[in-house]
């Protein structure tokens, strides 16, 4: 923070007006923070309430009788299996995404091969195609390859993304070639240069990509929705949650549904709290400044 006493304004803003503005700002910002956070607090509290209490006092913050009913019900409905599926899929997708995106991004920025420019533009161009438009093509291919209702159908199509390649390519572009040339002169081959020199330099981009891939995969809904048609053992958490909401009809068991929602939210919340700096930085890498 710089001190503002270094100059004298020609028109003095009265200090009380300045302070009033600050007070109003705090009031507004805390109010909005409440709007963003309170629903989560209420959801956590409700997930520990009994059903009759939820019907009677749906907005009360503290449960009158504390119960694990909702969570027990969730786990009796296979939510553990769905959570494991989500974790497994998100982990594989994240690792392969980083690996493929780093390799492809490097090749596209550093190795000139015939048509490399065209390939790059074609890949980036697909980022313009909205997800909903890709839904049917994706289904056609998965059906033709017999990958409907399988783990491979959930994982393989997500193993590399245009966004990942774009992010890595942008980052590699900014790394001076002289660094690699120096390593080359010292006798390192292309692979060693890549793994020991370039990749460590791209750490911020890789961290951002890890976070985005994991988050994307963990929260993904549309893709599993069309891939898994019958086998409930292959459900991911969001898919299972949506299925339960449909299956329960009008009589929604809110403690169970909100328990499931909070279980789905918790892992991302923890990752976010520990790595929030990278989330925020990641957003600014992803094209805003590019």
């Amino acid at each position: 923070m710089t001190t503002s006493s270094a100059y004298t304004p020609t028109r003095q803003i009265s200090p009380w007006r300045e302070n009033l503005r600050l007070v109003l700002s705090y009031a507004l910002l805390f109010l909005i923070a409440l709007i963003f956070l309170y629903p989560f607090v209420l959801a956590i509290s409700t997930s520990f309430k009994t059903l009759p209490e939820i019907n009677e006092r749906p907005v009360a913050l503290i449960p009158q009788t504390f119960t694990l009913e909702g969570y027990q019900r969730m786990f009796s409905l296979n939510v553990g299996r769905w959570a494991l599926n989500s974790l497994l899929i998100a982990t594989i997708v994240t690792i392969s995404n980083v690996l493929f995106a780093a390799l492809a991004g490097y090749a596209l920025t550093r190795i000139a091969f015939p048509g490399s420019r065209f390939v790059f533009l074609a890949i980036i161009g697909t980022m313009m195609i909205p997800g909903i438009v890709q839904l049917i093509p994706m289904f056609i291919v998965l059906k033709s390859l017999n990958m409907i209702d399988s783990y491979s159908g959930l994982i393989v199509p997500k193993m590399v993304t245009a966004f990942g390649i774009f992010l890595m390519a942008q980052f590699f572009e900014a790394i001076p070639r002289e660094i690699e040339e120096a390593a080359r002169i010292d006798g390192a081959n292309r692979f060693r240069t890549f793994f020991q020199v370039v990749l460590p330099l791209a750490r911020p981009a890789i961290v951002a990509l890890v976070i985005f891939s994991f988050q994307g995969s963990w929260n993904e809904f549309m893709h599993p929705l069309i891939v898994i048609t019958t086998n409930q053992d292959l459900y991911t958490l969001p898919l299972g949650l949506a299925f339960l909401r449909g299956g329960l009809g009008q009589n929604l068991q809110w403690n169970a549904l909100l328990a499931g929602s909070m279980l789905t939210t918790l892992p991302m919340a923890l990752i976010f709290l520990f790595f929030q700096r990278y989330f925020i930085e990641g957003i600014s890498y992803s094209g805003v400044k590019g």
Binding site: W218, N219, L257, S261, T265
Partner: peptide, 8 residues
């Protein structure tokens, strides 16, 4: 957070 959890 997950759009499904939030919608719920």
């Amino acid at each position: 957070t997950s759009s499904i959890a939030i919608s719920m």
